[in-house]
């Protein structure tokens, strides 16, 4: 990530001025140090999101659990029982829930960060702070709900194990933090790119909502990777979310296909996407107020 360093020679401001505002700046002139100075703001945004989400609801944070639970029940009935899609011999509830919990984190990150500029235009139009603080706070506050859902998933897992079901959480669990970071990175990366483009091309906002839903069907959430016919495998594997979801599930349930090369591809994809996203976001944030 050396390319993101703002202190490269040539980008240093002349000593006497703290800041020089120019019409165009170097594409790589990204002020991450400034973002660090505003870390308290990121924290405040996270708190705001969290508090405001459940104010005046009776069930409060229980909603974090109800959402994946109901989705799991529905998937179990429709895809498991009615359509009869294979779950690789894993209890349907566990199979679907492990997919849903991971996917939900990624998709909410993407959906919410993709609205960064449009939703926050009133604030952005009145005061300057590093714009990246907002999408980053979204990713963090969703991480909180992910952790709650993950703990809930683990409870189910424990229950099934006590019942003697053949699921084997294994050493791959050590990969989990990396997987979560990759999901966050992909969601954030796509989100900020889309949000940068929506300042000019509003059409994308319509695309995102159902695009993400469609994307879910291209990811092994409701079916195992092993159920994919050979001729379509390349398509599913080209999806950077596939190795992440598959590894996530294998780590928890012990059944699945792990391919480190695919995982490496996803990792590389995430890094490149993030760098590209930050660059484009950084370019747009300077003048988006004029076009949004």
């Amino acid at each position: 990530m050396n390319t993101l360093n703002a202190d490269k020679p040539g980008n240093i401001l002349p000593k006497e001025w703290t800041m020089i505002l120019r019409p165009k700046r170097n594409l790589l002139d990204i002020n991450l140090r400034e973002l660090w100075l505003y870390r308290d703001l990121v924290g405040m945004f996270v708190k705001r999101d969290f508090v405001s989400k459940f104010k005046q609801t009776i069930l409060g944070p229980l909603w974090f659990i109800i959402q994946p639970l109901l989705t799991t029940v529905m998937f179990t009935i429709i895809f498991g029982n009615i359509a009869g899609i294979s779950t690789d011999g894993i209890p349907k509830v566990l199979f679907y829930m492990s997919g849903i919990v991971g996917w939900t984190y990624f998709s909410t990150c993407l959906n919410e960060t993709s609205q960064t500029f449009i939703k926050n235009a009133p604030i952005f139009g009145k005061v300057y702070f590093p714009r990246l603080a907002l999408p980053i706070s979204v990713v963090i506050s969703n991480l909180v709900s992910f952790v709650i859902q993950f703990v809930f998933l683990c409870c189910f897992l424990a229950y099934f194990m006590i019942q003697g079901t053949d699921v084997k959480p294994n050493i791959l669990i050590l990969w989990l933090p990396v997987l979560v970071l990759m999901m966050a990175g992909l969601g954030l990366g796509f989100g900020i790119i889309i949000s940068s483009l929506t300042t000019k091309y509003r059409d994308l906002t319509h695309l995102v909502t159902f695009g993400v839903t469609l994307w879910m069907y291209a990811t092994p959430i409701i079916y195992p990777l092993s159920a994919i016919p050979e001729n379509m495998k390349l398509f599913v594997i080209a999806n950077p979310m596939t190795p992440i979801v598959e590894t996530f599930r294998t780590a928890l349930l012990g059944v699945g296909q792990i391919n480190y090369l695919h995982l490496l591809y996803s990792f590389g994809f995430t890094v490149v996407l993030l760098i590209f996203g930050v660059i484009i976001f950084n370019k747009v944030e300077k003048t988006f107020m004029d076009t949004v």
């Binding site: 001025w17 020089i20 505002l21 019409p23 300077k286 107020m289 004029d290």
Partner: peptide, 18 residues
């Protein structure tokens, strides 16, 4: 707005100290 960095100038430079 230009001075408070809400949006960027089309041409020219703004230098700020502090």
């Amino acid at each position: 707005k230009l001075m408070s960095r809400v949006t960027s100038p089309t041409t020219g430079e703004i230098k700020i100290k502090g």
